[in-house]
Amino acid sequence: MPSALKLQEQYGDALQVVFVECQGSTRDQYEAFAWKMKWMGGRAMWTEERPFQTVGNGLPETALVGVDGTILMQGHPGNFGSKLEEALAAEIKKIKSPPEGTSAALKKAWGSFLKGDVAAALEECDKLGTDEAKAAREEFVTRTQRRIARAKWLVDEAYLVEAEAHLGQLAKDVKGATDLEPLVAAETAKLTEPARAGEREASKAYAAFAEQVAKKKPFDAANVKKAELLAEKHASTKSGERAARFAALSKIKPAG
């Protein structure tokens, strides 16, 4: 567990760690457990749904899924030695490279896309006009639309601090892409809507609180009190609900 968290911290947004609880704890129980262990506060996500079957007879078990979605390794982490980290480093390298088998003609388009210049990548594909270029264009648009959908989700769920960061990067990346730029601008405009002022303030307050307590003593009485005060001050906002949930989690008994 801590080694996966260290990798998440080391690689940041270039890696996604997904923790899958397999011993029947409820969502409340494993989230409370993770807070208590000071494992929260990073980018890792937590679920009890197994995205695919486990192969071993016990826990822990680790699987590495490559940049193209293929399961590359799976088993007890102790059996991998340095192979897991080597394979992971190789996948991280691929993030900045076109997929294997990309023709020389399309490398420029992929290069632009991977540097974040979506408009230049799309333009290059249109200029080439080949079937391969059309497929690449579709891939660029799909990936960007997924990022926009994620930004929309962040805005709708009032994770406004995170949405602002995500949209800031997206706005730079889609500049000049006529079909995509307005979609990003529409979500960005929502951030400053007067109707969201309360959520904006609450989102900032809760994000700062969560960051501050995650690596210290999250469920220390003083922190729980702070969460309760935040929940009271920002009642009827989504971040206020998150603060109330944090306080409630502090009272959850571990599974046993």
């Binding site: 567990m1 011993q23 590495l64 991280i92 993030i95 997924r146 994620r150």
Partner: peptide, 22 residues
């Protein structure tokens, strides 16, 4: 944070850690 499934993570590696709280 808006990730609905593995399709949303395409383009970056994913480390899946199966664990237990007990």
């Amino acid at each position: 944070m808006g990730v609905a499934g593995f399709a949303d993570l395409r383009g970056k590696p994913v480390l899946v850690d199966f664990w237990g709280t007990r």
